[in-house]
Structure formats: structure tokens, C-alpha cells
Amino acid sequence: MRVRPPAGLAVVGILGGAVLLVPFVALVAGVDLTRLPGLLSSPSALDALGLSLRTALTATAICLVIGTPLALVLTRLDFPGRSFARSLVLLPLVVPPVVGGIALTEAFGRRGLIGEHLQLLGIDIAFTSAAVVMAQVFVSLPFLVVALEGALLTRGEAHERTALSLGASPLRTFLTVTLPLLVPGLVAGLVLTFARALGEFGATITFAGSLQGTTRTLPLQVYLERETDPEAAVALSLVLVVVALVVITVAYGRRDRRRDDRQTGARA
């Protein structure tokens, strides 16, 4: 028998759910289904969708490669100022994305701290798809790191210690014990990272620009479409919502199932 929350709280809780859901319901209601295929198969929409998928996948892969070591450093390495460093990682999550875009411009723009030197090497990031990926990595990396930190902290180090006690090297322990045990947290984290990268707007428009096929991702296309064809904007928004929904259902559905399995397994 579950302990039920007080009735009043349940009502507020349902209202809270409505706050989250009503806009999406309205969005779906606003789509003219007969026009949908035409709107979604326009060259600009397809370009935007393709670019969004390519860049978001690349950004997610980069986050995986740099975010996993970062999460390990932040949870498994003792150094002064670690808790401060851990809160710093959250910074891109809480600053407005536009601010992120400005910061990226200051760093990697033509006259930026690093961009200035890249420029001399003939590397020009602004207005390229690489700039889009950088903006996406910048805003979505915290999602992965936070998810991994959570997984690392809840699981603790007991399994790794066991492996070391059995004579395994640190590298072997990492590859054969730490990483496999991280997989559930990693999947959930990667899904959020991908979804955030896919939805990135503010930093992209500030740092990367907006050109069809190169830097105009789906969110930028939606924003632009609003100017002339709001109905097309609503249709494209629906695509983003559906993609996000699929991604989240796959990841979280899977996780919940696993958790249920584990519980039944423990009872048996």
C-alpha cells in the first residue's frame, strides 16, 4: 500500500502537469495536418532537419568523449576546490544561451581570446557548422556530466575496489568495470545531451549565424519561419517535439524497465 500525498497536493500536482502539457497540446492542435507533408518536405525544412541531426549527433559524441573523463575527474579525484569546480560545470545550464553565445564569440570569434590565434593558423570557426557543434557542446555538456556524476556517486567505488583487489590495472578497471556500470547513466545522460543539442538556439544564433544547410538548424528555421509562415513554424516545432518525445521515451522507458527488473530480481 502506497502512502498517498494529501489530497490538496495532488490537485496542485495535476495543475503542475497541466502547465507542462497544455502548450504542447495547443501546438498539436495548431497543426494543419493536410499541409504537414508539404511543409516538412520543403528543401529548407529538410536541410534544417539534416543539419540539426548531424550537428547534434556530433556534439553528443564529443560530449561523450570529453564529458566522461570530466565526470570522473569531478567525482573520483580529490583536489582543492572540487565542489566549486562541480558547480562551475552547471554554469552553461543556468546562464541564458545568448550569454553562452556571446561568451563563445569572445573566446573563439575572430577577435576572440583563442579565435584570434586560430585565425592566424587559417582556422575560421564563425559561420561554419563547426560553430554550431561548438555551441551545442557548450550548452549540452553539463547534462551529460551531471547525469554521470549522479551515476558515479550513487554507485560508489566498491566494484572498482574489488577489481583492483583482484589485481586489475586502473585502465582495465576503468574499461571493464567502471564504464560498463556507467552504461545506464550514460544512456540517460546522452539522450538528454542530444535533446538539448537538438534544441539549441540562442548560442547558435549568436555565435554561428544562420545560413540554410550550414548553420540554420531546425530551431533557427522555426524562428525564421515564424516571420512569414507561422503555420510552417508550428509544423516544424511539432517535429522537434516529436523527436524529443521519442528520444526521452526510449531512454527513460528503458531505464524504468531496468529498475523494475532489478527489483523483481532482488525479490526472487
Binding site: 575496489r161 574489488t162 583492483l164 583487489s165 586489475a168 590495472s169
Partner: peptide
């Protein structure tokens, strides 16, 4: 001696 070189089972 670090744990992994001790040859001690736990």
C-alpha cells in the same frame, strides 16, 4: 604497496 599489487583477497 597499492591494493592491486598486494595479492590480498577481500
Amino acid at each position: 604497496i597499492p591494493a592491486r599489487r598486494r595479492n590480498v583477497g577481500y
